[in-house]
Write a protein that binds this DNA or RNA. Structure first.
Length: 200
DNA sequence: CGGCTGATCGTG
DNA sequence: ACGATCAGCCGA
């Protein structure tokens, strides 16, 4: 079994670079019976903390909800939005900075993902930040989880070259003014599991 | 297939 | 009030 990406990986200074490097890594969340449920990360976004108008920690805003994002790198930040969805983030070293996992390509446990998501095409199982949390059973109980622990982790999987990476604007943050234009979203070129972005 | 809308609730 | 969203419905 491949080695887990460790705290050192997540504790480097450049959160944007970490978001880029997470493409092609395997995200694993074992189920209650210990079976591996996993997917390859195909889309990420960097949130740059206190200087980023789109970030929960913009301006140093610190609440019970976003507390974990101020902690050390290599931990999970899960939050609840729109009254019904969770979103998965990995904390990096700088205060309030995180990488949002926006989409994965199912690899192991696809039948279990289908049970959780209901009847639908494979392409739709995990192609969005809220969808993948349902498919992997990620909720508030994983907030603050250690990525070196046994409840959720990341592994080396595929090597993604720069020619296979597209860089663009982040999604769903129109309120962030000029920071909505920052090129802090990364995805794998042509991968069908990348989220369908509805522009406005 | 693109656009619109209702669902639903913790946080501030 | 209002989201780092999604599914279902509508009309074309």
């Amino acid at each position: 079994m491949p080695k887990k990406l460790d705290h050192e990986f997540y504790s480097r200074e450049d959160t944007v670079q970490i978001a880029r490097e997470l493409l092609g890594k395997l995200l694993v969340v074992p189920d209650e019976e210990g079976r591996r449920i996993s997917g390859m990360i195909v889309e990420t976004e960097a949130y740059m903390g206190v200087i980023d108008k789109a970030a929960h920690s913009y301006g140093g805003r610190r609440t019970l909800r976003n507390e974990v994002s101020y902690g050390p790198g290599g931990y999970v930040y899960v939050f609840f939005v729109y009254g019904m969805y969770f979103q998965l983030n990995f904390v990096t070293a700088e205060p309030g900075q995180v990488v949002l996992i926006r989409a994965i390509e199912p690899v192991e446990g696809i039948e279990i993902m289908k049970e959780r998501r209901g009847p639908m095409k494979d392409m739709n199982l995990t192609s969005g930040p809220g969808k993948l949390c349902i498919a992997l059973d990620i909720d508030r109980s994983l907030n603050g989880a250690d990525l070196e622990g046994n409840s959720i982790w990341t592994e080396e999987f595929r090597s993604i070259t720069d020619t296979d990476v597209i860089v663009g604007k982040r999604v769903g943050i129109d309120y962030a003014a000029e920071d909505a234009e920052q090129p802090w979203r990364f995805w794998i070129k042509g991968n069908p599991y990348v989220s369908k972005t509805r522009v406005k």
